[in-house]
């Protein structure tokens, strides 16, 4: 901004910007705060802002449910689903970006339309298929489903990133005798790495927070953090301290991860819509 804004406007903007930010963030702040309260402090009226912090809620959560078991499932499923999806999507996006045919655009639109398939519409068959193949309540089963639901978006994002790689660079590689495989792994991938990273980031976040399939396809063995939290929603959920501690534990990794990677993430999320 080259022109000087009036001081009063500047103060107004600062106040407004901060009040809205704090208001939107407040529930998360309050959750973290409550997680350090004792159960009595957590339901005191009026609510306390200042208190002696205690770790008792965390202690009880760890005692009651094996957090690490759920967290490990979430990590396995999210990372697994993302990795497989990216491995499948890279060649597909490469083919669309560098070996396009008349049908490329149609295939892309069709892929995205499969993403609009409401999961609940196919809940019954998927549930029965998973049960009959003994994939119900396994990390593999959930990872496969998560992978398939995210695949279209991943192909699409990688495609937009690959389009930004100038074709002559790839051609030069081929002139030097590179095979397709070498072209893809040694020329394209290093160039498109930032794009692949932000695609993987988004996929990780979506898998981490995915609730529908994880609640319906797992029960105990492969239950991820979404299920861990749902188990605190019972009447026991009224123990605000424990509820907050469990919630904080479930979201903290992905929240911190999101904060660190937000710049990278924006690149991926905008689908080339913002130039």
């Amino acid at each position: 901004m080259a022109l000087k804004t009036k001081t009063s406007t500047r103060i107004g903007v600062t106040a407004l910007g901060w009040s809205i930010a704090l208001w939107l963030f407040f529930p998360i702040f309050w959750m973290i705060l409550t997680s350090f309260k004792s159960e009595v402090q957590a339901i005191s009226t009026p609510p306390k802002l200042f208190f002696m912090p205690t770790l008792s809620s965390y202690g009880e959560v760890f005692e009651r449910a094996s957090y690490w078991h759920f967290a490990l499932n979430t990590v396995i499923v999210s990372v697994g689903a993302t990795a497989i999806a990216v491995v499948l999507a890279v060649p597909a996006a490469y083919s669309m970006a560098f070996l396009p045919s008349k049908r490329t655009r149609g295939i892309l639109l069709w892929m995205l339309s499969t993403r609009m398939l409401p999961p609940v519409g196919v809940l019954v068959p998927i549930y029965l298929l998973a049960r009959n193949t003994h994939l119900l309540d396994t990390c593999t089963g959930l990872a496969v489903v998560d992978m398939l639901t995210n695949l279209p978006i991943i192909v699409w994002m990688l495609y937009t990133f690959f389009r930004e790689v100038p074709a002559p660079i790839l051609e030069a590689g081929r002139m030097d005798g590179a095979t397709r495989w070498q072209e893809m792994t040694m020329v394209l991938l290093p160039l498109a790495l930032p794009g692949i990273a932000s695609t993987a980031l988004l996929s990780l976040i979506l898998c981490w927070n995915e609730a529908f399939w994880s609640l319906n396809l797992t029960s105990s063995h492969a239950a991820p953090l979404t299920a861990f939290i749902a188990s605190f929603s019972s009447p026991e959920g009224l123990f605000f301290g424990k509820l907050s501690a469990a919630s904080t534990l479930a979201v903290a990794p992905i929240l911190v991860f999101g904060w660190i990677s937000q710049k990278q993430l924006v690149r991926g999320l905008t689908f080339g819509a913002v130039k």
């Binding site: 529930p27 998360i28 927070n209 953090l225 605190f232 509820l243 919630s247 979201v251 929240l255 937000q262």
Partner: peptide, 18 residues
Amino acid sequence: RILVISPFFIMPTVSALL
């Protein structure tokens, strides 16, 4: 800005309970 975008990272079950 970081505070504003934070709710996007919260899983639906947690935000509902919260």
